[in-house]
Design a protein around this nucleic acid. Structure first.
Length: 97
DNA sequence: CTAATGACGCTAC
DNA sequence: CGTAGCGCCATTA
């Protein structure tokens, strides 16, 4: 199984309304943050992965640097799940579960 | 096999 | 606050 698949499998278990950082996801699946980011970048719609629940260690939406459009999409989905953003557009702090 | 490519994270300045 | 450099490593070309 590709490392990506292991990452997708774990991310799929994150409940709606919860947010974890790339590093935290990496800790759970035994991968480095870089690999987690790479996996999220490649995940396809059919993978059914809640990629929006993974943010940067500082609570920012890292995807914004690459695609403002995707960042807006991520924020929209999180707010729909009840996640609150601070005045700087960041998640107060990744939630744990 | 080598090189390039990231939705990262941390430290230093 | 912002930028830069480095370590990291699976995946792809």
């Amino acid at each position: 199984m590709d490392d990506f698949e292991a990452i997708y499998a774990f991310v799929r278990t994150i409940p709606a309304g919860f947010v974890l950082s790339y590093g935290e996801v990496g800790d759970r699946v035994g991968s480095r943050p870089r690999t987690v980011g790479s996996a999220m970048a490649h995940c396809a719609e059919e993978d059914k992965v809640p990629w929006h629940r993974v943010v940067g260690s500082d609570g920012t939406l890292r995807v914004a640097r690459y695609s403002p459009v995707l960042a807006a999409e991520q924020r929209r989905r999180l707010e729909l799940e009840g996640v609150v953003f601070d005045t700087k557009g960041r998640v107060p702090h990744p939630f744990f579960w």
